[in-house]
């Protein structure tokens, strides 16, 4: 019983932490590899709690801590990975370094999830 009370106390404590901000960013990702590239790059950043790309809409859903990182920086991170992020175009050099299928906007050469 005592353990239960302790656990309950723990719950309420963790529930009090400020909720993260959420945003959606439009990208031009094509395939599973793109998804992996973007998610890996974003999830490696400080302040990002979760980033998930939906390949159908090509939108990234991000949850982030606004005290640590802002939305523009997140868009820049996507651009620096080689993809367009809303109004920020991909960095040309990073884009050139992507695998061929991720650059092919017609999307015929590769459709690989996960």
């Amino acid at each position: 019983m005592r353990i239960l009370i302790a656990l309950l106390a723990v719950f309420t404590f963790t529930a009090m932490v400020a909720p993260p901000k959420k945003a959606t960013i439009q990208t031009n990702a094509i395939c599973g590899m793109c998804k992996k590239n973007i998610e890996t790059a974003l999830n490696g950043l400080d302040g990002i709690e979760k980033a998930e790309l939906d390949l159908v809409t090509k939108k990234v859903k991000v949850k982030y801590d606004a005290k640590v990182i802002d939305l523009t920086t997140i868009r820049q991170a996507i651009a620096a990975t080689g993809y367009d992020a809303d109004d920020i175009p991909a960095r040309p050099k990073a884009r050139a370094a992507l695998a061929a299928c991720c650059r092919d906007e017609s999307g015929d050469s590769c459709k690989k999830p996960e």
Binding site: G32, L55, C110, K111
Partner: peptide, 8 residues
């Protein structure tokens, strides 16, 4: 992975 839909 060559399906038309990438999540398949």
């Amino acid at each position: 992975f060559g399906f038309n839909k990438p999540h398949q």
